[in-house]
Design a protein around this nucleic acid. Sequence first.
DNA 1: ACCAGCGGGACTCCCCGTTGAT
DNA 2: ATCAACGGGGAGTCCCGCTGGT
Lengths: 200, 200, 200, 200
Amino acid sequence: MFDSPPSGAGTRARLVSSMVNLLQRRGLVGAGLTEILHDAEAPKGVLYYHFPGGKVELAIAAIEASVDWLVGALDDTLAKFDDPLDAFEHWIAKSGRRLTRTTFERGCPLAAVSLESSPHDKAMRAALAKAFATLRDRLASALVSHGYPHSEADGAAALLVAAYEGGLMQARVAGSIYPLMTACSTLVTLLRARRALTVS
Amino acid sequence: MFDSPPSGAGTRARLVSSMVNLLQRRGLVGAGLTEILHDAEAPKGVLYYHFPGGKVELAIAAIEASVDWLVGALDDTLAKFDDPLDAFEHWIAKSGRRLTRTTFERGCPLAAVSLESSPHDKAMRAALAKAFATLRDRLASALVSHGYPHSEADGAAALLVAAYEGGLMQARVAGSIYPLMTACSTLVTLLRARRALTVS
Amino acid sequence: MFDSPPSGAGTRARLVSSMVNLLQRRGLVGAGLTEILHDAEAPKGVLYYHFPGGKVELAIAAIEASVDWLVGALDDTLAKFDDPLDAFEHWIAKSGRRLTRTTFERGCPLAAVSLESSPHDKAMRAALAKAFATLRDRLASALVSHGYPHSEADGAAALLVAAYEGGLMQARVAGSIYPLMTACSTLVTLLRARRALTVS
Amino acid sequence: MFDSPPSGAGTRARLVSSMVNLLQRRGLVGAGLTEILHDAEAPKGVLYYHFPGGKVELAIAAIEASVDWLVGALDDTLAKFDDPLDAFEHWIAKSGRRLTRTTFERGCPLAAVSLESSPHDKAMRAALAKAFATLRDRLASALVSHGYPHSEADGAAALLVAAYEGGLMQARVAGSIYPLMTACSTLVTLLRARRALTVS
DNA sequence: ACCAGCGGGACTCCCCGTTGAT
DNA sequence: ATCAACGGGGAGTCCCGCTGGT
């Protein structure tokens, strides 16, 4: 889910991929260019050739790449399950396994940057807002097309995203997937119950 | 809610308070000592007198102060309402107003640090884990004592915290309280429905 | 006088012309290749096609172009006046007007480079030395052919150039043409008096 | 004349002194902080302790120190000679010797910066303008008090400064003191003649 | 105990002038 | 004539000790 996008051949792609990786672990401020460059095995000057806007432009590219990748993965998962709530459970379970496997080092590539950004970082926040909006839209329309009441789908989508982000945050600092898992499975239970009610 | 703790007179308190403030806006890495010192109107040497551990020790103090303050505010709110879900709604509404008032500059003092931290920052993560756990416990026991099924209270508490943190994140980058509000009111609706079911 | 040479059509000429322009405003070190390329609307690689020696070779070309242009303008002016001192006064007046018009941004294309250069920049200093020598010679021979004592013409020519360069320097930092004007008109007065004496 | 000011004990003074030195040789843009720090044997952080404004603030301090030192030396020289023109000749002769001794590496600490500065560097140009004005005033009043016509003293002072700066520029690139010497001795001759006329 | 001056480098992001392969 | 890559500095700022006075 939150692996780097497949790390295409070119230098530019390697830069983006390294940035995504660091964004997940330390956020934008914590991500040193030196480190990015080092692990993309790219020399210094290359960055400003591909991203004249420097760190921020690279970060935005990384966010966009992440979101493309997330949406792709999300669509795949939704397609595999008849019920979007099943898909969500699957997604969460997978996240939990990855979290354990990587010893809670990496989170969502959008989250840390979001919290570090200020209203003055217009471009940054715009990219992030668009990213979250896209995710919510995908979830909402999946919910609707599977019988969830139309008027409540937006709220449920925002809540799903929030539960995921907020659960991940608690899980990482706790060094345990428990907060993520309980929060999300509680949510799924609640949503199922809700749908059952409105359907009947 | 997330204002700085009352900023006691002493130098040490002013340092902590400045740190809390910056944590909400930029996270730990983004918080420069120079800036902290400047806005606490404290000279350089003072920091290492009060916090020999430097920046990190100050940050931990800031987190603890924040959590004390949060728990206090939470308890007050819970006490004012018969139903903890009403209390939560009130809390969210207040957060929304503050968010608008401060033009989406400040978030939760725990959140950004959480996402920047790595598993190696043991002390940091321990403080954060304890902080979140405390909040969850408070919420869970309030839920239980107001009729929410015991076996599901932990999950609901984790979900409440997650919804808040995740909603806040989406709201800040969107520059709109909408994602926070819908996510949370959806959650409240769901929880009320659930309780109605189990009570009957 | 110190406008760029007419900026011939070709890419090469545009490069030289941009360089001249920047030399007048910031000197050689201050002139970034990126900026030159940008304002000549030329891609990066082009420079090394036309000037394999890089920045320095371009600068030398710019100096030579400047000097050609200066000598041309000087000869024209001298031709227009019977007395070279009248010509000098005219030149200075024109410089003053341009200075005001351009808000004291631009100076002589030779001056800044001269002061930044070190004895080790042989080619650079040679080009500059030749440039100044040419200007002095032109002035000296004009003086001689208009009755100025032969033995003192070289000194007077060097002094004229110096007064111009030194006056320009003072004028630019002062943001006022006054130092340039007084210095030069004083000099003209002195030279006229001298000539009057020796002629009689 | 163009030695660094006596290089007082403190770190700050050493920084200023190094800056003065580099200003004479390469101008402000050409003066790397690294080099300055190296030859002042000071670490980086110290600079921003003494000069929070960074390079520019240090440069302004260097200009002010230079001017103080120049004015001091000028006053001393003027005091040693009855006639200010004798003093000027002496000054020039000394400059010429130093030029030769240092193989034309160093010039006036004010000159290069002046030519690199733009109208937008307000503080810089103000410091420079003040510096030149001070020098002119000193010279003008010396001239007046030794019989030079009051109404022409300002012009003569500006011309003396210009001749010096412009002569130095030509001399350095030529690798020969000749342009400086002839320009200045010509000027002295002219001024003497002028004074003789008006006195009688 | 509390505070402050002064200093110390490593590290930040950025951009420079430059070259091979195409 | 051009694109992509190259590293080495550019200035600036980081977080952090010493030493000494109160």
